[in-house]
Structures are given as C-alpha cells and as structure tokens.
C-alpha cells in the first residue's frame, strides 16, 4: 500500500446530525493527477478540508507518504508539503500579487520577528530569496506582468491563477485544487491545463483536484474517485465518467 502518496481510509465526517462523509477511501499515486468528482454536496471540499486539518473527521485515517496527517495541527500541514487553493479565494486584496504569493510561502520561508528586529541583513537576504521564488512561480503561471498589481484590481480568472501561483510557490508534494476550473473560459482552462502539465513534468508534484468540467478532467486526470452523498460510489480510470451508469447518473446527470 505504500506505493500511494496519499492514503485515506474509512474517512467519516459528521456535522451535527448530518453525515458529510461516510467511510470514504481514497488512494492517490505519487506524481499522478487524481480527480475528485461528484455532484454538489457530495463531500468533495469536506474531504480536502480533512486533509488540510480544517475539519476533524469522526473516523478514518489520512496518511501522506506514511505520515499520519491527523496527528498534525492545521498550521503544520503546509510545512509537510501540502498546498491548496480555495473555491472562493483566499487572497489578500489590498496586497500586490507578488506579496500574496510571498505570504503563501510562510511555511517555506525562514525568518520571522527576530530577524525583522535585529538581524536585518538576514531578513533582507531571506526576503530577496522569497521574492525570487515568488517571481518564478508568477512567471510559471504567466503572471509576471501583473506582479505589482493589487489583487483586488485583477479580473476573476487572473485571481484564480494567483491562487495557483501561491500554492505552487512552496514546491508542494501534494497540491489540492478546489474547483480550479470554475468560472474560467475555454482559453483560461487550456492555459491551466498546460500549466499543470508543465508543473507535473518539471516537479514531483501529485495533484488532487475537484472539478465539474468533464472535458478538463478527461484531459488531465490519471485516475478518479467519485463521491455522492458522502460515499465513494466509484473509482478508477477517468473514462468511468462516461461509461459507469451510476457515475453518469450521479455526476453528469446533475451537470448543467
């Protein structure tokens, strides 16, 4: 079983009396792109929230390369190499694109208060390193031109790209993408696909992504797990989305 980077077993989550997830298993191979799909309310985001420790599961286990994630506090997750994007943005509008990406590098960026007050040489060196890495990440996602723009002034699609740039700036082992295709037009989606492909080619990253966009999923995923009403109803090859009648009924059937 250790040939999986991410191993989730028997994961259950209850909110009050509501069961959000019920005994879900999820296995993600290293350096693969794994699609997590299902209709709204299936528990996809809840599952990501369990991985990043924002939601406490009532049962089950989550392991990253063998390490027990449920034993770690929420703020330690980024340091373990897990980065994520959010469905509804988590950007700081009043800061520039570059500063947002640098803020995202908290876990990988050495330094802190002591350097900022007493060791200014080291502070400035670490700032330069962080800035250089952040600029690389922005170049990678095609955002170099807007590095100094305030995030609040950017259009929707670009803000999505900033979130991705922030997530990949820490060079994650596991990248969790929550609806990265939502609201994107065809051209932006194609750019996203190319960026993720290039990321896969140039790093060891493993990607777990939630999307409602079937064509995008088929074009990028190596495997899928299908959730419906908190249960795993299917897993395996992405083509399931078109062939498995249960999946088609649950997923495609509800898709506008």
């Amino acid at each position: 079983m250790t040939d999986h980077l991410l191993e989730i077993q028997g994961l259950s989550v209850q909110f009050g009396g509501v069961t959000a997830l019920s005994g879900v298993d999820l296995l993600v191979r290293p350096q693969s792109v794994h699609g997590l799909i299902g209709p709204n309310g299936a528990g996809k985001t809840t599952l990501l929230n369990c991985i990043t420790r924002l939601v406490r599961p009532t049962a089950g286990s989550i392991r990253l390369a063998g390490a027990d994630l449920l034993a770690a506090p929420p703020h330690a997750i980024a340091g373990m190499g897990i980065a994520r994007t959010f469905q509804n943005f988590g950007l700081i509008g009043e800061l520039s694109v570059l500063e947002n990406v640098m803020a995202g590098m908290h876990a990988r960026h050495p330094g802190g208060l002591l350097e900022e007050m007493l060791l200014l040489g080291r502070r400035n060196r670490h700032e330069r390193q962080a800035r250089a890495r952040a600029l690389e990440s922005l170049a990678f996602t095609g955002l170099s031109d807007v590095a100094d723009r305030l995030v609040a002034s950017l259009p929707y699609g670009m803000r999505k790209a900033v979130e991705l740039a922030r997530a990949i700036a820490i060079d994650p082992r596991l990248l969790l993408l929550d609806e990265p295709t939502a609201g994107l037009n065809e051209a932006e989606m194609e750019r996203l696909r190319r960026t993720l492909r290039e990321l896969q080619r140039s790093t060891d990253v493993t990607i777990l992504l939630i999307t409602h966009h079937v064509e995008f999923l088929l074009g990028i995923a190596d495997a899928v797990t299908v959730l419906d009403l908190g249960r795993r109803i299917a897993f395996g090859d992405p083509s399931l989305v078109k062939t498995d009648p249960q999946v088609v009924a649950a997923y495609i059937g509800t898709e506008a």
Binding site: L54, A78, G90, L95, A103, G104
Partner: peptide, 15 residues
C-alpha cells in the same frame, strides 16, 4: 495580514 483577511487560509499556509 493573511490571518486578518482569512483565518482558514492563514492556517492552510502554515500560520
């Protein structure tokens, strides 16, 4: 600034 904007995001970033 990150935690002042969104605490959930801040935690996910390792703060």
């Amino acid at each position: 600034r990150t935690l002042g904007t969104n605490e959930i995001v801040a935690q996910s970033l390792g703060i």
